[in-house]
Simulated assay, not measured.
Amino acid sequence: MPVLPDTGYQPTAEDRESLDAWFADYDTLSAQRKVDRMADMAVFPLNLVSDDSAGNGRSAQWDRAQFVETMTQVMGGGSSEDITFDSVRTPVFLSAAMAIVFSDSTMTVEGHTQQLRYADILLRRDGGWAFQTMVQGGWGDNL
């Protein structure tokens, strides 16, 4: 992952490695459509920020049940088709316990690719990372 200029909190090698490992685990669960396990990696209520099809900014909070229901629907919970992700992530550590991570990702499903750009706010709790806020365009009609 690229590192931004030398400002603010400077992450340690362990900070970076643990965040990279968290995303590797999350991507694996996403590819396997293990939505319940993905939910285990979040802090609820989960904040969502997006825009809708009318071009308006939207925000909401989801509980675990809403996350599981929506992500299962979006990801095709029963599908056996492989999903792959190729992502470049740029973390900005605000402290040892908070990071905003900007992602440019290519998702491939059934041979079709889609470019994604999004940001997540992650918190470190009890030594592990969890996402607390998702920011991505195009989700607003689901909020």
Rank of each mutant, 00 (worst) to 15 (best):
Q10W: 02
P11N: 07
T12W: 13
A13F: 07
R16I: 13
L19E: 12
L19A: 08
L19S: 09
D20E: 14
W22A: 06
W22L: 13
A24Y: 08
A24S: 06
D25M: 14
Y26W: 15
Y26D: 07
T28W: 14
S30R: 13
S30I: 05
S30Q: 10
R33W: 08
R33C: 03
K34L: 13
D36P: 04
D36L: 00
D36M: 00
R37V: 08
M38V: 01
M38D: 00
A39L: 10
D40Q: 08
D40I: 11
M41L: 05
M41C: 03
A42L: 09
V43D: 01
V43K: 00
F44H: 04
P45C: 02
L46C: 03
L46R: 07
L46N: 04
V49K: 10
V49F: 09
V49I: 11
S50N: 05
S50Y: 07
S50E: 03
D51M: 14
D51L: 12
D52G: 05
S53G: 00
A54G: 08
A54E: 09
A54R: 15
G55F: 04
N56M: 09
G57R: 15
A60Y: 07
A60C: 02
A60T: 02
D63F: 14
A65E: 09
A65S: 06
Q66R: 08
Q66M: 01
F67Y: 12
F67V: 15
V68H: 09
V68F: 04
T70Q: 01
T70P: 00
T70M: 01
M71K: 10
T72I: 03
T72D: 10
Q73L: 11
M75T: 15
G76R: 05
G77D: 06
G78P: 07
E81Y: 02
D82F: 12
I83N: 04
I83W: 01
F85E: 08
F85K: 08
D86K: 08
D86N: 13
V88I: 15
R89P: 03
T90F: 05
T90Q: 11
P91L: 11
V92C: 08
V92M: 10
L94G: 06
L94V: 13
A97T: 14
A97L: 12
M98F: 02
M98S: 07
A99P: 05
A99L: 06
I100C: 09
V101E: 04
F102C: 03
D104V: 09
D104I: 10
S105E: 04
T106D: 11
T108R: 09
V109C: 08
V109P: 14
E110P: 15
G111F: 03
G111I: 06
G111W: 01
Q114T: 01
Q114D: 05
Q114Y: 06
Q114G: 03
Q115F: 00
Q115S: 04
L116V: 09
L116M: 15
